[in-house]
Design a protein around this nucleic acid. Structure first.
Lengths: 201, 201
DNA sequence: GGCAAACCGTAACAAATGTTACATCAGGCG
DNA sequence: CGCCTGATGTAACATTTGTTACGGTTTGCC
């Protein structure tokens, strides 16, 4: 399908080999905006490719605490980091933000496919490594940083905070707590606030 | 080398293909107990195989906060999750606990090798996926769980806490804080304490 | 213009965790 | 036996973050 060719993973491979891959049991699934695409604990036995739409991934704790982990925007893979684990269940809840289209590609067929297409294998390994870096950075952020430090990291990565409520979700804090910390940092001269939001100074 | 054959990754591959892999530029490095093996920010451009000894991985924050992330015991790979990232630096500090031996295997040679040895490729993908699960579980623990919940998870995974100080390092808390929480949980009947330590009841 | 909804800053209080200090206890070793 | 060391429990206080509530501002819509 043409949809699949848009993704970086399949960029450097021929049409016929891609068609051979899709001869194996595959599934194309559509989700309307707002629908839940994955629940924590769902198994992922297929390579999931988001070819259309946007979604978000959240992690949830026992006590109702919740963190917005990632913003997913087509074209990209969903949960590639867990695909080949023995007990592979997704740890996040994925919700469609817009209408979405997801391809499910048989895991074993994809494994064979990678062996025949070195560039695909290479790209897949790069994607997995990027996810590893992403996850370890997130873990470090939450494990050893105070909210103030997380704000600094956020500003280093994103430039500015335009929505306090949205930033609070990603930083794992409540909106009033983040608002208070931002005010303190402004009065200490660490950051500035203007019409567009907060940023480093 | 016989040392390398002990590792799961190379379990199912022939001697001669392994020898071919080692014809590429490789390096065998020894570390004495207590020595630093990796610093945060060090690049990892080679597959690192811990073939002898034990080590520990720590993450450190700006304010001196610190978490013991992982206990590394030969035979296993070091930082496999970052190997193929474009800007691949390790996020942790790795220190030898005993005398250690580490093999550095050329990344590109290993990439070629995996293409010729499907079982090695498969095992490597499984290892990466396990690391993904490990990292996302850690991240979730620190992002959305209170110390009490982290204690529960720790007990579910490890059975008991025999050393409060050691558990505190892994749980990202100070020893007195963990001690207090454990006391509270005992008095609430959630856990019990005997001569061997704390455990669920 | 007026109204409603969303977002924001802020304050007062509560809960969780860190900090520091000290007393206790067990085990090893003279 | 007595001492020393390390790990532990605990208390008092400080800091960080959550909770709840309220008022203000903006924005879009009628």
């Amino acid at each position: 399908m043409e949809e699949l060719k848009r993704i970086k993973l399949f960029a450097g491979c021929s049409d016929e080999s891609l068609e051979r891959l899709l001869e194996n049991p595959c599934r194309r699934q559509e989700y309307s905006a707002g629908r839940r695409m994955l629940n924590p604990g769902d198994p992922c036995r297929a390579l999931m490719v988001l070819v259309e739409g946007q979604a978000e991934a959240r992690m949830m704790g026992e006590e109702g605490r919740e963190v917005l982990v990632d913003h997913l925007k087509a074209p990209m893979l969903l949960a590639p980091a867990f695909l080949f684990a023995n007990n592979n269940v997704v740890p996040v809840e994925v919700t469609a933000l817009t209408d979405c289209v997801v391809w499910h590609i048989n895991r074993e067929a994809f494994f064979e496919f990678m062996q025949q297409e070195p560039t695909v294998l290479r790209t897949f390994l790069e994607i997995l490594s990027e996810r590893g870096r992403f996850l370890s950075r997130k873990m470090r952020t939450f494990a050893v940083n105070s909210l103030r430090n997380r704000v600094i990291e956020y500003l280093d990565a994103n430039g500015s905070i335009t929505s306090v409520a949205a930033a609070a979700e990603q930083l794992g804090a409540t909106r009033p707590s983040l608002s208070r910390v931002l005010s303190e940092m402004v009065s200490e001269g660490l950051i500035t606030k203007d019409g567009k939001g907060y940023k480093k100074c």
